[in-house]
Design a protein around this nucleic acid. Structure first.
Lengths: 356, 356
DNA sequence: GTTAGCACTCGTTGAACAAGAGTGCCAGAA
DNA sequence: TTCTGGCACTCTTGTTCAACGAGTGCTAAC
């Protein structure tokens, strides 16, 4: 919707160039950009007065503002949006950076959660900002195997493995003592019957079989738990969100005000911002940029997010993104997130290729 | 060592009382405490001049300092230590607070990790400070069950369950295609042979059997992974540390200075501070108080930690603690941590009682 | 359409100053 | 001895004021 408005904005090439300079200069210095500064540091072949006239026009269009009279200009959210949509050219990441990133993934054999944590950490260090990542999740998880173990007389542990290798566990409390042999027998029968089935398929199966199958007293509870655990594996927002590098973001001068920091930290600590973000990313392809106020979540208003899906097309996907102040080097962020999401997809592809 | 020094400190009852007032007043107001303030707000039956003389003595002993001439006094780390050791009386938590805390644990049936997260969260909210918690870990984990699953042609997933219900997983990469039937057979044999064995017992067993047992090509790798996974379950510092309520700690005025905040956040983000803390808590019983500089970890210098072990005596224990500024309400923290560690122990006890 | 020039605004800096907080110390009282 | 009133001294905090400088908007000329 905002994009449409932007398309209508008619400005001259020079004004466009000036806007670009203001964004880049402000991003790197964090200080309002003055007309003089522009003509001195960039080869604009006009005087500062002309630049001032153009800046007045850009301000009229709502792309830049001045914090107070007698200060330079800073971009508005809208100005950043225009920059991101029309002005910046996210080039490929330099080769040595690419190598540096790849190198960190080749080091060790990691379990999936560690792998995602590592991704967040690498991204965070590369862009010098906070990063978030979620583990890849299938939209459709099929039962690979589950196990039923008696931990104590009244406690059962259920461990479930999905066909893509995801593992969940749940503790169940039972009234009556459970015999391990009985449990193992039940697990064996169910594993044979349900192997490769999805959550809903299992539900259907149980509705048909419940009456006839002789599976013992635990079966109803086990089946119920089974479907709920499988279902949970499929819901992308139920997974863990890993974030790293909060300290980077707090180095930025816009968070010097003590109240601001707490906002951000509370934002990171409570998970629901992420789940709304994850659900809103459901259909999107490519690197998405969410600038300041555009973010639905309140409190995130002073932040921008550059985020992309990675994974195997339609089969299992996770998210990877940068969170930083609105005054963010978007070009670099987009390049890095783009490269890394591609890299993660490749690694995932390699891991699951020739799957049986 | 510091305790010995403190025992030698000889001060009058009144000086002791004044130190107590200074600590409590400073903890609640965060401002240096003046002599006048003491005689006005507390029933000290002497004049401010007398209090000043006592304060001079307390300063000579290194228990309090003044930030600058013409300011009131604030406690030193040593002063806090004296207060904690000799002056405060951590009373039991008020009954309604106890009920409030208990209530939050009775709500839902949770898996263990969630349970620990909840503990950190409840503690954090109760003391209005940051809290950390680790999941209970056994010093001796015995193999309950493990499973070997072919996720793709080149990837094996190993899922291991300890006798206390802990679950770990690891992905293994193999060169040759693995057949699920073969893997299941191997897992079945090994489960039968190794059930109830510890990491070292398995290692011994394998050393004896390696030559004679006909277990196929995967056996060496599987055995190696098995012992390493079990061993990892036993190492208390290898578990996740959950922390909550960072924002509370940053509300404190001592973290207003922008640099301070980042220190703390970096501290929380990197795990090694916690592992040194965990290992240093190995032998300790009861609620431990670590004040500022006493902490071995640098950077934690401006923080105090009130921490206790919980769990089943010698069988499985975790940690639960409060992290806050040195200017912390120690009495309340100690009461709360004491109560909550007892509560967690009871809950754990109930869960594992009558264990088979 | 562009530019030089200039008046105007407003934030920043630093000095000077007053007010206030709190102490240390001393001489005298209990 | 131990305590207290009194007082000088120090240091922080807040305020005012002026000077400065940065940057703009406008106008008149190119």
């Amino acid at each position: 919707m905002l994009m449409d408005q932007l398309a209508e904005i008619k400005i001259t090439d020079r004004q466009r160039a000036i806007l670009g300079i203001i964004v880049e200069e402000y991003v790197s210095t964090a200080r309002p950009v003055a007309s003089e500064q522009i003509v001195n540091n960039y080869r604009v072949n006009v005087s500062s007065a002309t630049v001032r006239n153009d800046m007045a026009e850009l301000e009229r269009l709502g792309l830049i503002v001045q914090p107070h009279t007698s200060a330079g200009r800073i971009p508005t959210d809208r100005g950043y949006r225009y920059f991101v949509s029309n002005l910046m050219h996210p080039s490929a990441l330099p080769l040595d950076e690419q190598r540096k990133i790849r190198h960190q993934f080749h080091q060790v054999e990691l379990d999936e959660d560690e792998w995602v944590k590592l991704a967040a950490s690498v991204l965070s260090r590369t862009v010098h900002s906070a990063a978030v990542a979620t583990a890849p999740r299938s939209t459709e998880v099929r039962l690979k195997h589950f196990e039923l173990l008696a931990i104590s007389d009244t406690r059962l542990l259920m461990v479930l493995v999905g066909d893509e290798g995801s593992v969940t566990q749940q503790m169940l409390t039972v009234d009556e003592a459970a015999d391990q042999a009985e449990l193992s027998a039940l697990a064996l029968k169910l594993n044979n019957a349900l192997d490769g089935k999805t959550s809903t398929e299992i539900q259907d199966w149980w509705e048909r079989e419940e009456k006839t199958a002789q599976l013992g007293e635990f079966a109803p509870m086990v089946l119920k738990t089974l479907t709920s655990m499988l279902g949970k594996l499929e819901r992308p927002e139920s997974g863990n969100v890993y974030h790293e590098g909060l300290s980077h973001i707090l180095e930025q001068p816009e968070f010097r005000l003590p109240g601001r920091m707490q906002q951000i930290i509370e934002l990171f600590e409570q998970g629901d911002v992420w789940s709304t973000l994850i659900t809103s990313m459901a259909g999107r392809e490519g690197v998405q940029v969410i600038i300041g106020e555009e973010g639905t979540a309140e409190g995130i208003a002073s932040c921008s997010v550059v985020i992309a899906r990675y994974g195997l097309e339609d089969r299992m996907t996770g998210l990877l993104g940068v969170v930083g102040p609105v005054r963010m080097p978007y070009s670099r962020s987009v390049s890095t997130v783009g490269y890394m999401s591609q890299l993660l997809s490749d690694l995932l592809q390699r891991a699951y290729t020739r799957e049986g």
